[in-house]
Design a binder for these strands. Structure first.
Length: 106
DNA sequence: ATCTTGACCTAAT
DNA sequence: CATTAGGCCAAGA
């Protein structure tokens, strides 16, 4: 088995996110046993273009804010995708975020 | 090994 | 509200 880079782990988790659910960088980091590396998780997402099958729009910061929306093709693409999955976005934030939150370890 | 960067978090100014 | 600063971690050059 090849070495599993941090990126690979992140991708693996993000791909596991159920449709219509979202998670946070911190939750992913925690799942990877590196709870303080939330930045590194986000950094991995920056490289997610290497694997476009990753639903990065389902990954937000711990406030449920779409911090990474500006890294998408368009600023409204991310919230549009979330809306398509039944998630309401208001002012770049996920409405009822707690309700849509999904923990990778659960 | 050293330096830089990054889609974070928190606090302070 | 905008910017800075410190802390945290991983990867690339």
């Amino acid at each position: 088995m090849k070495k599993t880079s941090f990126f690979q782990k992140v991708y693996k988790v993000v791909k596991k996110i159920p449709h219509g659910k979202v998670t946070t960088y911190g939750a992913i980091a925690k799942y990877l046993a590196t709870p303080s590396s939330s930045r590194t998780v986000g950094w991995a997402m920056n490289a997610c273009h290497n694997d476009k099958s990753i639903p990065a729009h389902r990954v937000v910061n711990r406030n449920g804010v779409l911090t990474g929306k500006n890294h998408f093709l368009g600023i409204n693409l991310m919230e549009q995708l979330l809306n398509s999955e039944g998630i309401d976005v208001k002012d770049d934030k996920i409405v009822n975020f707690k309700n849509h939150f999904w923990d990778p370890n659960t």
